[in-house]
């Protein structure tokens, strides 16, 4: 196996959320000790429910947040503690595609200035910018006469293409796709997914694909990590994970996905979890999933299970195995 492009070690991202009764700061532990590797050219799927910290991991990796603790080793350099100026050279190599194509494009800027902005910030010459913009627009399947229009003139799928063109402008090595298709209609989702796959084949980029759509993650990812309440609970190659899931949360999550095939749906059994995801503010000690787990043992409420490699490439954080 090649050496990892990004090594994430015990990443922690806490947000202050006001004071408690005695004036003590409370903390929302959005990400609480997550470790994994990203290999060049792969797509790593990050799944979980809202509030599990998957988007925060993505944002911390491209340094939109400064992590509270932990390391992000990007090709040998730990970029987690770098300040705004020191991290600048890494910015062009890492880009992000956002979830909401309505909120992530400036409505007052034309398509060409949106796509050109990252290059302007890196002080590229104007003729190089123009040439690159024309090239990008073609690559993402838009037309040249779209360049002088404004975002409101486009449909959701087309806007997401504009966002992708902007992300690709600086030839990034690593792109975080944060729920890139969840705001789009089903028939448009497949267009965008196919385009992301083709672009990866042409340019060999590494994707971190953050999504709650488990069937799309299965389709696009090489390896998948499952997150719950700020922790990574299971991580494996995609086929291994979907055929041999070990964590009770992964099992419940996968079984909850409605199957778009009536015969298979009739055969399958849903594991319905009781209750809601707890708040990540001052979480109790022990396994984050203990309060909803069917197999909860006394030890689960006391000690946080560590990540162990249960079979080659398959990592699990659970006291059961």
């Amino acid at each position: 196996m090649p050496s990892p492009m990004i090594e994430v070690r015990s990443l922690r991202m806490y947000f202050p959320v006001g004071n408690n009764l005695f004036g003590k700061r409370r903390q929302l532990k959005a990400v609480d000790g997550v470790s994994f590797d990203l290999y060049p050219g792969e797509t790593f799927g990050l799944v979980g429910e809202s509030g599990c910290g998957k988007t925060t991991v993505g944002r911390a990796l491209v340094r939109l947040y400064k992590p509270t603790d932990g390391q992000i080793i990007y090709q040998g350099t730990d970029i987690a503690p770098l300040d705004e100026k020191e991290v600048q050279p890494y910015r062009r190599r890492m880009q992000m595609i956002f979830q909401d194509p309505y909120a992530s494009l400036n409505p007052r800027m034309t398509v060409s200035s949106i796509i050109a902005e990252p290059m302007k910030l890196q002080q590229a010459p104007q003729d190089a910018i123009d040439a690159r913009v024309a090239e990008l627009v073609e690559q993402v399947g838009l037309k040249k006469d779209h360049l002088n229009r404004y975002p409101h003139e486009f449909s959701g799928g087309q806007r997401q293409r504009i966002g992708i063109a902007r992300a690709l402008a600086m030839h990034p090595e690593f792109v975080v796709c944060d729920e890139p298709i969840s705001a789009l209609d089903v028939s448009i989702q497949a267009q965008v997914i196919n385009m992301l796959e083709e672009l990866q084949q042409q340019m060999g980029m590494t994707y971190l694909f953050v999504s709650h759509d488990l069937s799309m993650v299965r389709h696009i990812s090489h390896r998948v990590g499952v997150m719950y309440l700020g922790h990574m609970v299971e991580l494996a190659e995609v086929e291994e994970l979907y055929s041999n899931m070990l964590h009770p949360y992964t099992q419940a999550l996968m079984s909850a996905v409605p199957i778009a095939d009536p015969d298979l749906a009739a055969q399958s059994r849903r594991i319905v979890l009781q209750g809601d995801v707890p708040q990540p503010i001052d979480p109790p000690p022990g396994c984050p999933f203990a309060s909803r787990c069917r197999h909860c043992m006394p030890v689960c409420r006391e000690a946080l299970p560590g990540m162990r490699e249960v079979s080659p490439g398959h990592y699990l954080a659970c006291h059961l195995k």
Partner: peptide, 15 residues
């Protein structure tokens, strides 16, 4: 245009 349950990685979706 939706991924099939048994679909293998690398198979294209037909949008």
């Amino acid at each position: 245009s939706i991924p099939k349950v048994q679909q293998k990685r690398g198979e294209k979706l037909i949008p």
